[in-house]
Design a protein around this nucleic acid. Sequence first.
DNA 1: CCGCATCCTTTAGGATACTG
DNA 2: CAGTATCCTAAAGGATGCGG
Lengths: 123, 123
Amino acid sequence: MAKAPRHGPYICGIDAALDVVSGKWKGLILWELDAHGVRRFAELRRGLPGVSEKMLTQHLREMEEDNLVHREVFAEVPPRVEYSLTEHGHTLNQALAPLGAWGSDRMRREGFEVVEAAETSHS
Amino acid sequence: MAKAPRHGPYICGIDAALDVVSGKWKGLILWELDAHGVRRFAELRRGLPGVSEKMLTQHLREMEEDNLVHREVFAEVPPRVEYSLTEHGHTLNQALAPLGAWGSDRMRREGFEVVEAAETSHS
DNA sequence: CCGCATCCTTTAGGATACTG
DNA sequence: CAGTATCCTAAAGGATGCGG
């Protein structure tokens, strides 16, 4: 078993929400899936520059358990697995939007660099 | 120096924002300061059940450096230090509000327990 | 009262090799 | 293609004791 003894008692809503999006790539995964609708494992991997297979799998499993992500396996060869947001995951993304805007603002203010993924081409 | 080599390059706004609120107690500190306006060190400590002095100090320093929290020292004996949100911290809190609502919703849905602090008595 | 310093444990995250 | 399994490092967090 990897880790994840999360889901402890929370003190407030922020606490409960941050628990679910904590993890180096979870915010990005939500963002990718929201932008593209459906993504395969390898596509997600390309969209998250620097992520390891292990972390991607682990995060996806946790998000699936948290009912944020839907995982659909096609019994073909070669295998194909598609990931998408659940309705629940979609509402989370909407709740995250203002925070994202605040963060973009912060980046502009502080002059932080933006590392754009290869060919994600959103907007 | 404790740690904090944060402020790396970011991939998107969510990334940049989560970096600043990551840390076991930062969300709660924001919430406490927003609810009360001004808090002393010991008051904050009581409002965050389980926090150690080290973590509280460390988080407060980082948030001060990120310009989210204002720290005012009164040269008295016994010493008194008051913490409050900066304008910047306040806007973060507003951006965090929808996420907090989502989290509260999640807690209700999943039936997680709420651990309320001793005598914070917000609302 | 408000911390800082030190030491220690736990957890997150990464590298790499292998499998159905 | 889409993962597991194993090992390892780094960072976060916690306990405790001292100091202004």
